[in-house]
Design a protein around this nucleic acid. Structure first.
Lengths: 179, 179
DNA sequence: GGAAATTACCTGTCCGAACAAGTAAATCAC
DNA sequence: GTGATTTACTTGTTCGGACAGGTAATTTCC
């Protein structure tokens, strides 16, 4: 991992704010500062989550599935896909790996022969506290030194960016074919 | 802590949109609102970048390599790894794919028989404007409707979160072995 | 000069993510 | 009821990303 040492951010130029940036902004990415910041933050965040989850035998993404199952009980894969806004193919493999790891069991749906219900195993419940601890820890690390107001503001900022992209995606797919 | 959970994050329904295009925040993730927001934003952002890059024959990540090469000229793989804070193994494969795609060429380093210099091909320069356009477009979509001040604030927020994680990573690695 | 550590790169493996394509079952339309 | 469409799921492929391990060249230190 070896995140580079804090050092000179090549100021990209907005008014006033001439503060140091902690990350290498090698000017090549000066093009899209926000995009690049999202990219780097995401990478770091994912790496951190992976590092924490690794200790409890999960990979990033798997813990989300487990959390949904613990909270909502048995779900079909399609439900999990919808809950996580994920991909059906990815879910197939993720569930299979969770099954092989013994955290999940499949049961054929009584009402739909196409579907199977995914349910957490008894063994998996021992993980629940640990997973919640990991998420809590990750949240604390991310928001270290931020006041409640700042956290709220940060959350709003992230959601605003997300909303923009959701909107753009809706526009672009909607432009092609009316849904 | 940091458990603000402002009203489940819902409530932004675009007026009149007869569909719940927005994002599922299924309470299971209410645990770490910031973490989850980062996760979702990153996923969307990456998906969008991939969609845009796909049209010009690149995959997410490859464009970063190319941008560095265009800007800095021939680099060793190790340099690219450092510039992108990436992984050596990943870089090996990324460079090979870029080479197979004809965007990059390898030349043995004159001073170091272990290393090879990666340089952009002439053909690749036709891509440069398109790549920059993609980044510009991505930035515009992300920051749609944001004022300059809001953009700056958003950037600072992202960098603050990143700095926290960088710090946490430095702490955890530094705790194990003093560097 | 020569052993030991470091550096640069490659390969294998596993994972999530996305796309394409396919199968089977359920639902809809007529 | 039959045919068309939709839904649920699977597999194959390709990519980035991370880890483990391996080779060769370089540097460090004695």
């Amino acid at each position: 991992m070896a995140q580079s040492t804090p050092e000179g951010g090549s100021g990209w130029g907005p008014p006033g704010a001439g503060q140091e940036v902690t990350v290498p902004v090698p000017a090549a990415a000066g093009s899209g500062p926000i995009s690049h910041a999202i990219f780097r933050l995401a990478r770091l965040h994912r790496m951190f989550a992976g590092q924490l989850l690794r200790r409890i035998g999960l990979h990033p993404g798997q813990e989300l599935v487990m959390m949904h199952l613990w909270e909502l009980g048995p779900q079909r894969q399609a439900d999990l896909v919808r809950l996580m806004d994920s991909d059906a193919a990815t879910m197939t493999r993720t569930v299979r790996r969770l099954e092989q790891a013994g955290f999940v069991r499949r049961r054929p749906s009584p009402t739909d022969k196409r579907a199977s219900l995914i349910e957490p195993t008894a063994a998996s419940h021992a993980l629940r506290r640990e997973v919640e601890q990991v998420w809590s820890q990750l949240e604390d690390l991310s928001t270290a030194g931020l006041s409640d107001d700042e956290c709220t503001a940060a959350l709003r900022t992230l959601e605003r960016l997300e909303r923009n992209l959701v909107q753009a995606a809706a526009d672009s797919t909607g432009a092609n074919r009316e849904r």
